[in-house]
């Protein structure tokens, strides 16, 4: 069963534990500037939004890569950067509509979320369950359940 990262911005407090978990796993040090997942604080609204690659099926980055350095991991569904092949041309960073694949000037390669091979560190590190790793076919389960709960007799209509 394929799984997917599920992000609930309502629960995010902006603590960056996810960014540290990601960077220490991928780069070996606590380094938010090298994280594949980013938290965006919208200060004036008082909202924190975690954002990372959604692992598109028809992945723009994968198709754009001229050297086939981005490949599908069939088990996890992740599009992974093969470092030995990546030439740092950055075409993928231009093609991605979401901005979730980026160049790392220190390594000369691009970096993106690879779902940590099926055990994403960000989800494990999140203290508020704003990031979870769930059945890819049922990312709407909790929202659907909350809607369904409104049918319980005696519940307020809203």
């Amino acid at each position: 069963m394929q799984k997917s990262l599920l992000i609930d911005a309502d629960k995010c407090t902006g603590c960056l534990q996810c960014e540290m978990a990601c960077s220490v796993s991928a780069e070996g040090s606590f380094n938010p500037s090298k994280s594949r997942i980013k938290i965006f604080p919208f200060h004036d609204e008082g909202v924190f939004v975690p954002y990372t690659c959604t692992q598109c099926d028809e992945a723009w980055c994968l198709h754009a890569c001229p050297v086939e350095a981005i490949q599908l991991n069939k088990e996890t569904g992740a599009k992974e950067v093969i470092n030995d092949l990546c030439v740092g041309c950055k075409v993928c960073t231009i093609s991605c509509p979401f901005g979730t694949i980026n160049y790392n000037a220190d390594s000369g390669k691009v970096i993106k979320c690879d779902l940590c091979g099926g055990d994403p560190e960000c989800a494990k590190a999140c203290p508020t369950d704003a990031i979870t790793y769930v059945d890819a076919n049922w990312t709407g389960y909790d929202k659907m359940k909350a809607s369904a709960a409104k049918a319980i007799p005696g519940q307020p209509a809203s």
């Binding site: 407090t13 603590c15 960056l16 534990q17 008082g46």
Partner: peptide, 16 residues
Amino acid sequence: TRNGGCFACTIACGRI
């Protein structure tokens, strides 16, 4: 509006 955390904080007592 919501609570917020400082860097690395898993308590998040901050008031927004």
